[in-house]
Amino acid sequence: MSGGLTLDPSSLLGSGPTQIERRARHMDIGAVPVCAGALGETIWLACGDGQLRVFGPDGAMTPHKAHRGAILSMAMVPGEDALLTGGDDGRFLRVAGDGTVAELAHHPRRWVDHVAAGTGGRIACSVGRAVHLHDGDGQVHALDHPSTAGGLAFDAKGGRLAVAHYGGVTIWSKEKRGWKPATLKWAGSHTGVTFSPDGRFVVSTMQENAMHGWRLRDKADLRMSGYPSRVKGWAWAGALPWLATTGADQAILWPFDGIKGPMGRSPLQLCWSVPSLVTAVAAVPGREIVLAGFATGQVVFSEIDAMAEPRMVKRSAGAPVIVLTCTPGGRLLAADEDGCMLWADLSAI
């Protein structure tokens, strides 16, 4: 591929499998997919049976045993050929691109619920209410919270760590004498968190059918509500950037440009196609593209443009698509709840 992604011209109106589907690799892995990420053109899928399944640039799959129970979370290490995983066996692992596994910590009888990786060698994992922040210099800080951590995220520079929990989000900032907390309050249970790429905003997913955000400069609230179901997946997409989210019958994209971000603005609604809910979203790094996976198994592609016509990537029905990821070069993995995979090279078509 030298130009852009060339996509299947399948319009919404066709029937039967799309051209991409017919050429794609399909497999049943017999395990629940948990999350996926890309290291270069290789896609790593974390699974509920403790294995990492690695899809090479040619689509060939290699399994790697990582945890003894389920893998609960995974994070790609920025700028490195490595990723982190946490499991219900209490282990916090670093896995290199060649498959070498190193145990970073072991918390017997506990679950490592969430992991996050920042720049400068900073990494973190959560075990119940405690977040263990490994500083680049080898120090480990135990950060306590009022309730179990629902999600973790570093900002792009690695100097701040956001922890979602019941009642809000705590932002830990690196200062001369260690990490200092600041609390962003909002009633309810916060189940996930992400910084905007420029670090000006932080956004959480909630137990309710809503997201909540804050502008960090002044802690101004951003209400992102109106979803018919819970928001469980998100992806930063496009140059603006947009925060693409699941939870509605289309991918909902909130604008995060300008001083106000999404305050008082309507989101873009893309990938309209089937009367079903979006259960996974993915961006293609460096491109104005969003992909949405649906509760009824379809995968739809759209350019990020209010006038864009959505295109079908996978038209065949199936179990809810819960993991969706795409490499910068256009290699796509869609995984459904029952463990059925579709791997496709969108650039080769």
Partner: peptide, 9 residues
């Protein structure tokens, strides 16, 4: 916890 357990089969 139930969400975590549902990842196993």
């Amino acid at each position: 916890i139930l969400g975590g357990l549902m990842k196993r089969r």
